[in-house]
């Protein structure tokens, strides 16, 4: 390893203090230094969206961010989405700990191979906060920064609408 800088940040509420090379990408830092491998890397040039995480609440492509740029930031990844809840509104008790968006994806068959899914989920979290009642066009627009080769997007759109309904109640 070449010259390193030490960064401090929190990921899913947990504080980390790590030396990193300046050229280390945030995606690689999360996946390979912190072993949070739920964030996936699909293109490494910011097009596919699979590596999307929340940086201080905003959805960013972690393959386009250097780890050093996340110094002092709060990061959220897919691993932090599910939290034990009362499961209200989720008809499948075994999914009660899932975030409503996660549960809706399962219920609507919004994923197949699941590789692109974590990034899509992380985009949808702030999207649904800002757009609690989106129409299909808004949903498709929000998804258009993500590539999915398996689903044809249709069931993802359904899942987002279902999640919005659940989260509204």
């Amino acid at each position: 390893m070449g010259e390193t800088l030490t960064i401090r940040l929190t990921v899913n509420g947990k504080a980390y203090d790590r030396p990193v090379e300046p050229r280390l990408l945030l995606s690689d830092f999360l996946r390979h230094d912190l072993h949070l491998t739920g964030t996936h890397v699909g293109c490494e040039h910011g097009v596919c969206g699979a590596c999307t995480v929340l940086l201080d609440g905003e959805a960013v492509r972690s393959c386009l961010v250097f780890a050093v740029q996340a110094d002092g930031a709060e990061i959220s990844t897919v691993e932090g989405l599910a939290t034990p809840s009362d499961g209200s509104g989720i008809p499948h008790p075994e999914d009660a700990d899932l975030h409503p968006i996660q549960a809706a994806f399962r219920e609507s068959h919004g994923l197949q191979c699941g590789f692109c899914t974590p990034g899509i989920l992380m985009t949808l979290v702030p999207f649904l906060e800002e757009n609690p009642d989106p129409d299909e066009e808004q949903i498709r627009e929000a998804l258009s920064g993500h590539l999915c080769r398996c689903t044809g997007y249709q069931n993802i759109v359904t899942a987002v609408r279902l999640a919005a309904d659940r989260m509204a109640t």
Partner: peptide, 10 residues
């Protein structure tokens, strides 16, 4: 799907 939980939670 049985596999979805693992995929959705990372």
């Amino acid at each position: 799907r049985n596999e979805d939980r693992r995929l959705l939670t990372g």
